[in-house]
Write a protein that binds this DNA or RNA. Structure first.
Lengths: 258, 258
DNA sequence: CTTTAACTCTGTACAGTGTACGAAGAAGAG
DNA sequence: CTCTTCTTCGTACACTGTACAGAGTTAAAG
């Protein structure tokens, strides 16, 4: 089955969102003392998302966890979309610092491993799409660290951005596959193997689905399916892909140096 | 701002979903003639998603487009989640055939270009996550074609699956970035440059956001931002990444051959 | 033929969602 | 003190997926 869905929400004026992200101190306050701070709301939302997924982050449930009425949250956060932005930047703060003494390959590897771990700590990150206004201080630092890893090794600026996107994209897709598998096992109570055992009789009764029509898929799919369910293997797939990508980057660099 | 969100929906019994995907002919029917066929529903849903994004695909709106009451759709489709599965497999039917006479590099390139184009024709594909039960005939054929491109060149079965995931993942992430940019420009009426012009004064007033703290990002981010907005450049980023990935795969293959 | 069973279609209803609006009350500014 | 601003909250609206029950239609069974 399929799930959804990244919905629109660019309202254009980024001022308030940016101020929240960067924690601009509130101007002189006149009314009653606020019960909470924006950070409390963000922390509660992250805790909810960690535990029950991004769909558990509803205004009502976050408010309930904070012992506050739903509408009060709008005092601290302009809306749900901006809350998600704040959550993203918040957990980006868990990523490691620059660590500059390494070579580019070791540095990129450390970055990728860091993000791999982050996705597994906060799986909901994979269900949220970021866009330009989500650039808070921690996301900025993340980007800076990524670029620093490959600065001064002969790549152009646009190339550097592309290389960084390549590596972070790899982490994202392999982490997604790893966590999707785990999530499905949890949700359906079936491993891939068990699921296929139930699905197979149905497929077998369909002429067009005969294995003869898909000879390579049948062979490879089985091997890959078993590998995905082995506990340690998603990480191997990730590191395999990372090695390929780094090799490709290395080829570019040595070509540039000639 | 951020958007959401892949929600759960594994109900466990895949029989009906699989039958729909593979177009099993309905058993002898007794009641009144159906006004529609499942394919009509899928086509209408795809048209809606193409035009207005995946969030426009609500049961009510699809039904309205078909001149039918919302609840009748449940005659043709078990629920919204399965409808999304059917949509995915439907558009996977637009992908090209195997084309086997090419070398692995040319074949993988053709596959990647095909998928790049598909994502641009159906941007909603990027907002939907697939999972195991979405494997209809066209998705199966897609996987088979991908594997065929690299079959018999010395890779193990699990490696083949990982390589295929690497390439298709790259297409997905670069297409996402390309389309996110386009979507934001459409939604906010601002290009990245215009957006930054408005955002900059806000950021400039925040000590922590000083460019001095992010020297490389400031330089590279500007260059990359301009590149993203140039009409032809997202495709260049995609092809740049593809070249790196293919180089990485090539390194593996020649290492295997020694 | 009549009867029966299966099937399509539809209206209503429910539990959710984000959030606009307005009222009530608290606390610092003058 | 008054005035203004701010927080908090209850209510309400439009929207979602879909469970359920009933009405109407058709083909098969007797």
């Amino acid at each position: 089955m399929a799930g959804v869905s990244t919905q629109e929400n660019g309202d254009g004026d980024p001022r308030r969102a940016i101020e929240l992200l960067w924690g601009v101190p509130a101007p002189p306050r006149r009314g009653p003392k606020p019960k909470l701070a924006t950070a409390d709301v963000v922390r509660a939302a992250v805790a909810l998302a960690d535990a029950d997924g991004i769909d558990a982050v509803t205004i009502r449930r976050v408010a309930e966890h904070l012992g506050v009425s739903p509408m009060s949250l709008y005092t601290y956060v302009p809306g749900r979309a901006e809350l998600l932005d704040l959550m993203i930047d918040h957990v980006h703060g868990e990523l490691g610092p620059a660590g500059e003494e390494l070579g580019w390959r070791a540095a990129l590897t450390a970055i990728a491993e860091d993000q791999w771990a982050l996705f597994h700590r906060h799986p909901w990150l994979l269900e949220v799409t970021t866009s330009r206004s989500a650039l808070g201080p921690h996301s900025f630092a993340k980007y800076e660290r990524e670029l620093r890893a490959i600065d001064g090794i002969g790549l152009g600026d646009v190339e550097m951005d592309a290389v960084v996107a390549l590596v972070t994209g790899l982490v994202r897709t392999t982490a997604r596959s790893s966590l999707d598998n785990a999530r499905l096992v949890r949700a359906t109570g079936m491993t891939d193997a068990q699921w296929w055992e139930r699905a197979w009789p149905v497929l077998a009764g369909i002429p067009a689905a005969d294995a003869a029509h898909y000879p390579i898929s049948s062979r490879v799919g089985q091997a890959a399916g078993e590998a995905h369910n082995a506990a340690e293997n998603p990480a191997h797939t990730f590191r395999f892909g990372l090695a390929r990508v780094l090799d490709g980057i290395e080829a570019l660099i040595s070509q540039r140096q000639q």
